Simulated assay, not measured.
Amino acid sequence: MRISARTQYALRAAAELAAASPGPLPADKIAEAQGIPRRFLDNILLQLRRAGLLRSRRGPDGGYWLARAPDQISLADIVRIVEGVPEGGDHGGFPGVAGPLADVWDALRDHEQALLSDVTLADITRRSAPLAPPAAATPGSPRP
């Protein structure tokens, strides 16, 4: 899986909001804390707000906050908003003996999605995110 800079910035901004005390956090504080270019961040925050993941308030006491509790927002939620829904497993098939590779790519994508779905913003802010492969993986099987 390739994670774009935009998605990485969105994940970092969301983690910053999850760790913030209740109430709005100004975009400039998020940008400064995470080293994200402000104009780029503004577009990301707007996208996350339009998707219903964030709320915002204007004015001197304004800023952004999460629309749900950090333990109710998975990394997959953020990736889906920023990157869109992942494509299906149609690789067009591979010829000959390489045919089974399509199944490997599908399994890899499924494992990535399972891991991102299992890890929440609360896990990230607690610094105890489960980094092991999803439970469906069997011991001794290759890790993605």
Rank of each mutant, 00 (worst) to 15 (best):
A15W: 03
A31L: 11
N43R: 14
A5C: 01
L11V: 13
F94N: 02
A27H: 14
A114W: 04
E87A: 14
R2P: 01
M1H: 10
L131Y: 01
L17Y: 11
G35V: 14
S4A: 13
A76H: 08
P142E: 07
M1K: 03
P26I: 10
P144H: 02
R68P: 00
P134A: 03
M1T: 09
G35S: 15
R126G: 11
I36D: 07
L115C: 03
P86S: 03
R80M: 06
R39H: 06
A10V: 12
D77R: 11
G99C: 00
S117I: 00
I78Y: 11
Y64H: 15
V104N: 01
Q34S: 13
E83M: 08
V104L: 13
H111A: 14
E112I: 07
I73L: 13
P133S: 06
L66R: 14
R50D: 15
L46K: 13
I30N: 12
L41A: 07
V104E: 03
A135G: 00
T7W: 04
H111M: 11
F40W: 06
S141E: 13
Q72R: 15
T138M: 05
D123L: 07
R55T: 12
P134F: 04
R49V: 03
I73H: 09
F94E: 04
D71W: 11
L75V: 15
Y9Q: 12
A76R: 12
A33C: 08
V104H: 07
P100L: 06
D118Y: 01
T7F: 03
L53D: 06
W65L: 10
P142N: 05
R50F: 05
G62H: 09
F94L: 14
P144C: 01
R68I: 02
V82K: 03
N43W: 04
V82S: 07
D61A: 14
I36E: 08
A19F: 05
D90K: 01
G92R: 08
D28H: 15
I124K: 01
A135P: 01
S21W: 10
R57P: 00
R127I: 00
P139W: 02
I36S: 10
P22N: 11
H111C: 08
A114C: 01
